[in-house]
């Protein structure tokens, strides 16, 4: 954090806590900047809502990854596998519940979706737990091997998806009541985007509550700063880490379901496309920072959506430029995590 340490000579003066609001203003500034270029306010609202929806999905996927990195210095390049597995599990569940999906009733639709998400999250959570034990555990503290091993895990996982679900592209239909848009004035907002924003905000809020109001959350935040001291206080950080890894994987599974529904199609490589954005997000957010991850996700999604409208050919390249700009401003990301 950028809070200045109080001078040692005046221990009695109450230090001022400087809150760092600047990064929060960035998405606001970016969307304001985009307005004159987009021109039409209606289009701008549509794009901004799309960006928020996409940003929430990226956040849900990235939050677990950034915590895993912060806590244990493990960078999981195989995170994309959980996105794909989550999406495929949901596809299977929704296929079984096709009656609930096709009926034009929000209640039944959400029930089917809820069940699909539950299965996807339990499945990817368990998979994450196994992935941590088998793939990641033997290579703690060795970045090079971590990257290689988790990449290998990703290859194997993608191939297994081919074996189980087949290699062809699948259609992932939205439940009936979630199709179409809500019209407010002359702005049409797709229903699913609203749902995505709600889900993202709920995940973010839940994360903040857990991290700030529970002992587990305090341990995670403390562990991100200094895992060794957490152990010296008598807590088994390994258990904590496995738990965070599994929850992070489950969140990637949730994000995968949302992402597949958003795109309405699904292949085993679905994780690859969005993982590039996820990496950009956790770099510009500050590795290990949930708040930075949230703002970074919105920024990246805005950049992607505005440029997709204005200059469609350079959508991803514009995000590289965004990343470069932010790293030149703050080399450790928007909210650098205090490390020993």
């Amino acid at each position: 954090m950028t809070v200045a340490p109080a001078p040692a000579t005046t221990p009695e003066a109450l230090p001022a806590i400087k809150h760092d609001y600047l990064p929060i203003l960035l998405p606001v500034a970016l969307s304001a900047l985009a307005l004159p270029f987009v021109g039409n306010p209606t289009t701008w609202v549509t794009l901004t809502v799309a960006a928020l929806a996409m940003g929430m999905m990226i956040f849900v996927i990235a939050s677990g990854l950034t915590l895993v990195f912060g806590l244990m210095d493990v960078l999981n390049f195989g995170h994309g596998a959980f996105i794909a597995v989550g999406a495929y599990l949901a596809l299977s569940v929704l296929g079984l519940l096709s009656g609930w999906v096709q009926v034009d009733s929000l209640g039944w639709n959400l029930m089917a979706l809820g069940l699909a998400v539950t299965v996807a999250m339990i499945g990817t959570g368990l998979l994450g737990w196994a992935f941590e034990r088998v793939i990641v555990r033997p290579v703690y503290g060795q970045h090079l091997k971590q990257i290689l091993i988790t990449m290998g895990g990703l290859i194997v996982a993608e191939q297994l998806i081919h074996v189980i679900w087949g290699g062809d592209q699948k259609a992932m239909a939205l439940p009936t009541a979630l199709r179409g848009a809500v019209v407010i004035g002359d702005v049409a907002i797709e229903k699913f985007r609203i749902l995505a924003v709600v889900v993202g905000l709920v995940v973010f809020a839940a994360m903040l509550v857990v991290l700030n109001r529970t002992r587990i959350g305090l341990l995670i935040r403390a562990g991100v700063e200094n895992a060794e001291m957490v152990e010296a206080l008598g807590y088994r950080i390994r258990r904590l880490f496995v738990g965070v890894f599994a929850v992070g994987s489950a969140l990637a599974g949730l994000g995968g379901v949302m992402w597949a529904l958003y795109r309405e199609t699904l292949t085993a490589a679905i994780g690859g496309d969005i993982m590039v954005l996820v990496f950009i997000v956790i770099i510009i957010g500050g590795l290990g920072s949930v708040g930075g991850c949230f703002i970074g996700a919105i920024l990246v999604a805005m950049m992607a959506n505005y440029t997709a409208f204005l200059l469609p050919k350079v959508a991803l390249a514009s995000n590289i430029l965004l990343m470069v700009a932010i790293l030149m401003w703050r080399p450790q990301g928007l909210y650098p995590v205090a490390k020993r």
Partner: peptide, 21 residues
């Protein structure tokens, strides 16, 4: 300059952008 582990992520992103371009 920042952190060696950044390199893997940044190159992944840059290479993807280049492919799309």
């Amino acid at each position: 300059r920042v952190r060696a582990i950044f390199y893997a992520m940044i190159t992944l992103a840059v290479a993807s952008a280049f492919l799309i371009l």
